[in-house]
Amino acid sequence: MRPMTLLTGLLLAAPALVAQGTAPAGAPQTRVPSAADSAVMRALELPQILQRARNAGIPDSSVRGMIDAMRRRGLPAEEAIPAVEMEVEAVEQGASRDNFGSFVRAQVESGVRGQELAARIRAERQARGMGPGRGEPGGRPAGAGRPAGAGRPEGAGRPAGAGRPEGAGRPAGAGARPAGAGRPDSTARPKAPATPATRRP
């Protein structure tokens, strides 16, 4: 009977002992990463993004040229990343490799930094028809990028001449709306008194 009592006592006390023993080590971190912490974490991605550029077929000399320009100007790594990432994405999406780094170099050489650089990158992304970058509103979260080496392999694009054959488009006049086939007058938008020209034909 006595061993049973001891065993039961041990079993009952075990969870409490385990909790007591692990609480300090397993306790959740109370400190939230600061902006500086996040910047360091982001900076650590720089070599990976430039490796992604090499994997996308960008010559090593172009990659090094861009790095040299950024280093010379003392651009912090975390500020360089969005610009470099945009250039890499553009090449991955089919942009010419010859232009790789031209935007970044131009901005860096003209001394653009910080928020202004971020704003120009956003504008350039829009101009190129690219989505928002990581960490931007509506963009992918930081760290959610394509892994290095996951780009399209060299020469994996559509073969030359594989497009639509000449003359295979819609025949002339096939898309035209026949006369009188528009919206019936009864469903037309009411005529605005001041702007009569808004009514559709």
Binding site: V40, L50, Q51, R54, D60, V63, G149
Partner: peptide
């Protein structure tokens, strides 16, 4: 110093590959 280290690694394709 960390920035210098990362730029140094990024500039070298072999080190970048190892790091990645």
């Amino acid at each position: 110093g960390l920035d210098s280290l990362l730029y140094r690694i990024a500039a070298d394709s072999a080190m970048s590959a190892q790091y990645s």
